[in-house]
Each structure stands twice: as C-alpha cells, then as structure tokens.
Simulated assay, not measured.
Amino acid sequence: MVNSNYYAMDFLYVTPSHIQAARAANAVHAILLYRRKLDRGEIPPVMALGIVPMCSYQLERMFNTTRIPGKDTDTLLHLMESKHLAVYHKGRFYKVWLYYGGQHLRPRDLEQQFQRILDDPSPPQPGEERLAALTAGERVPWAEARARFFSHGKNKVSLDAIERAAFFLTLDEDEHGYVAGQEGCMDAYAKSLLHGHCYDRWFDKSFTLVVYKNGKLGCNAEHSWADAPIIGHLWELGTLIEDPQTGDPQLVTPKQGTPSVHPDWPSQLGTPTGDPQTGDPQTGHPFRAPQLTSPVGHAY
C-alpha cells in the first residue's frame, strides 16, 4: 500500500454539499456517468501537444478491477461489468445496487441508500471491522490468508462482493479539508486519503472513493492497473464537476429533502429479493455482507 497507492483531493475552498450522504450520492452518480461514457467510447483520447492521440488502453481497467494477491506475483481481476458498489462505514461492509429497472439510480435514490447506511446502528460482525487491513500489509500473508479462509462458503461470497464491485466507497467518520489558519490540516487530509486507519480503505480496488462527515471527499487509487493521469482524468471530468452532463456541481441541495421513491422497501437492512434487472422495488436496497466464519478477523 505504502509503495503503490496514491491519492487525489477535493476542492480546497468549495464544498457543494456538507451533507455526507448527498455529497457521496452526487460523486457516485457523476462517476457512473463517466463510466457509461467510457463504455460507449465517448471519451476522446488525450492529445499530446494537441496533435498525437495517446493510448487509452489503461482506461479500460478503471472500473470493476481488483488487484489479487499472490505468493509469487499479484494479478489483476477485471470484469466487463459490475452493477453494485461496495461501501464501508463504521467497520461494516455493504453491497449497494447501482441500477433500478436497467437504469442508473438517481442521486437522490443513492443518497437515500447511503443515509440508511449512516443511520444503521448495528455493530460490526466478528472479524469485519478490520478486514481491509489485510490489503494494506505484506502481500504473501494476504495471499495465504485469502487462499485459506476466503476460498469457499460465506467468506468467499463476502469477498466477491467487494472484489467484484464497480469500485469501493468509504463513508468516513472523520472530518478533513482545508481550514484557514489551522496548521497541519492539509497534512492530516493527505495522510487520511493515503492510508486512513489502514483498515477503512480497500487498497486492492482500482480506487476507493472517500467521503468525509463534513462533505469533503477524496480518492485513494491503486497504482498497478494504470498511471496516475488516468485517475486524474476521471477526477477532473467526473467527480469535480459532479454532473458531467450539465456542469451542475450540486444535484441534491443541502436544504432539499429526499422523499422516498420506493416506499415499499423493507425498513430493516437485509438481503434484497429479486433480480436487479427486473425493476423489483427492493433491488436498490443495501445489505450487509454475510458474517465471516474464519478466525482471520479476530487477529486484527
């Protein structure tokens, strides 16, 4: 993690929304719009000196990609499509569907899902809170633990939900960003994006979107799948202009309420029923990963 990952920051002086769930929803929606343009081949190549088009191959692995640990060498797992997002909050992992009836969830729909996660009072399950620390350490122990404890059963299902996600989102409990007159605030912001607590970022995902409690956000990116300018392109065209189609930086205003668009969703978090492609009203519902059955988590 220390030698491979890097980070990207938010605006210094502007925060479109101080509501954590709303800012996360805007950013995720903008990133999904970027992914759709990428899948459709609508993003033109970067031109060197404005004349020579540069190779865009690395863009293909921006989403749905995870670095898999190995004893001799790591490999990249890349999927052609992923329809869900892996979310981490207060030591708990969630799987959130990104589509409803074949369409992207709207920002206010995503905000509703993220707010339900933020409001969830349940504690982490045994071994869940610091599971991501395995991705921050030496690769061989992580490869051995993965082969021993995550190759079958509920543990494999849980790990697949993370590794096969479009990308990883951390709803952070801390507050960071530039504060005038506060010495060291930018250092703390940078360190948080680079490593956090070492167990609240999934360092093997192509990138982790970090949204702080005060609405600031940032990105931690894994380096092996592409050079840094690739993430920089996403960050400029996607996240910093939170609606690439309209240029509107604030899709959900802080004063605007978020009415329930699917009132028949269950009130308690649980495994969703139905197929995400059928339009079932529960398909946008987040649910906790199954409980880990191995002793790995207890060591962290």
Rank of each mutant, 00 (worst) to 15 (best):
G101C: 14
G91C: 02
W97N: 15
V87L: 05
Y94T: 10
F93V: 10
Y99H: 15
A86P: 06
Q103H: 13
Y88E: 09
R92S: 10
K90A: 12
F114D: 02
R106P: 03
H84A: 08
V87R: 00
R108M: 10
Q112M: 10
Q115W: 00
G101A: 15
L98P: 05
A86Q: 09
K90V: 05
L85I: 08
W97S: 13
G91A: 01
R106L: 15
L105K: 06
Y99C: 06
F114G: 01
D109C: 10
L110A: 10
F93C: 07
V96M: 04
R106Q: 15
R108Q: 13
Y100T: 07
Q113I: 02
W97K: 04
H104G: 07
L110C: 11
Y94L: 08
H89A: 11
Q112E: 14
F114L: 08
H84T: 13
Y99Q: 14
V87E: 08
P107A: 09
F93G: 08
P107N: 12
H89I: 09
K95H: 11
G102H: 10
H104N: 14
G101T: 09
Q113F: 01
R92W: 01
Q103F: 11
R106D: 11
Y88T: 04
L98R: 01
V96N: 00
G101V: 07
G102I: 06
L105D: 02
H84S: 13
R92L: 08
A86V: 12
V96C: 11
L110P: 05
H89L: 06
Q115G: 03
R106V: 09
Y100R: 06
D109Y: 11
E111F: 00
H84P: 06
H104R: 14
L85H: 01
V96K: 00
E111R: 02
G102Q: 08
L105Q: 04
L105W: 02
L85R: 04
K95E: 15
L98A: 05
H104S: 06
R92C: 12
R92V: 15
L98I: 07
Q115L: 01
W97T: 13
R108A: 13
Y100G: 06
Y88C: 00
G102V: 06
H84C: 01
G91P: 03
E111D: 13
Q113P: 03
H104E: 03
L105N: 05
Q112H: 14
K90M: 04
G91L: 01
D109V: 05
D109L: 03
L105T: 02
R108I: 07
L85M: 11
L105F: 11
F93A: 07
Q113T: 11
E111P: 00
Y100E: 11
G91H: 02
Q115E: 09
F114P: 10
G91I: 01
F93P: 05
Q113M: 10
R106E: 14
L98M: 12
R108T: 12
W97P: 08
K95T: 15
G102M: 08
W97R: 11
A86N: 07
D109K: 00
Q113H: 12
H104P: 11
F114M: 06
Y99G: 09
G91M: 00
D109E: 15
K90H: 10
Q113S: 14
P107S: 10
R106I: 10
D109A: 14
G102A: 12
L85V: 14
V96A: 04
L85S: 06
Y88D: 07
L98S: 04
Y99P: 03
V87I: 13
E111Y: 07
